[in-house]
Structure formats: structure tokens, C-alpha cells
């Protein structure tokens, strides 16, 4: 374990996080927005694993947290996709711009 320093991994995960945030704020396709959020959650996972491996290698807290995040993100994606499918049945579109009934 000499090659990659911790800062490089943090840079990658921060980039991934901001790419995800940018995608969430600019994409108008609901599935793409969901994918962007997943990207953000994955960047958090990279962070946890890197911190655990490099800074606190004697316990497994970070890894356990990562497993929980993956499981909960899967549950979240399942509910979100179910809602998006239901929205598609009602409006025939998965574009966020078309879901504009609730505006004032």
C-alpha cells in the first residue's frame, strides 16, 4: 500500500460528488436525476472506505456504514422508480419540466 495517497482518492470522490450535484440540478430527465443522486451517494461511499482504510484501519466502522448506504440507496431507488413509473402512467412523460401541475 504505497502507491495512491489519500488526497487523490478524496479528490476523485469530491469530483464525483460535484458531478452528481451538477447533474441533479441540470438534468431534466427524472431517471437521469436519480442516477446523479446515486453518483453522489457512491462518492460518499468512496470517502468512507478511503478514510477507514487510510486513517482508522483497526476498526470497520466506515465499511459497515458503506454497506448500510448501499442498501438504503437501493431501497430509495426502488421507491423512486415506482413513483416515476406511476407519474409516467398519469402524464405520459418522465421529464421534470412536464411535472408542473403544482405551481402558483
Amino acid at each position: 500500500m504505497s502507491g495512491v495517497p489519500l488526497t487523490h482518492i478524496i479528490i476523485v470522490s469530491s469530483l464525483l460528488f460535484f458531478i452528481g450535484a451538477y447533474g441533479f440540478l441540470t438534468r431534466r430527465n427524472l431517471i437521469a436525476m436519480l442516477m446523479s443522486v446515486e453518483l453522489m451517494l457512491n462518492s460518499v461511499n468512496i470517502n468512507f472506505i478511503a478514510f477507514n482504510k487510510y486513517l482508522f484501519p483497526d476498526n470497520l466502522d466506515g465499511l459497515v456504514y458503506t454497506i448500510f448506504i448501499i442498501a438504503i440507496a437501493a431501497a430509495e431507488a426502488a421507491v423512486a422508480i415506482a413513483i416515476i413509473i406511476n407519474l409516467f402512467r398519469n402524464t405520459r412523460s418522465i421529464d421534470a419540466e412536464d411535472a408542473d401541475q403544482l405551481k402558483n
Partner: peptide, 18 residues
């Protein structure tokens, strides 16, 4: 069956995920 209701659900889940 109401599209406004599914729109509410969609907005809620996406903003809470973010």
C-alpha cells in the same frame, strides 16, 4: 390515479435523496 399526487411523491423522494 391523480397526477398531482405522483408529482408530489416524485418531488419529495428526489429532494430527500439529494
Amino acid at each position: 390515479n391523480k397526477s398531482s399526487s405522483s408529482e408530489a411523491g416524485m418531488k419529495m423522494i428526489l429532494s430527500s435523496a439529494f
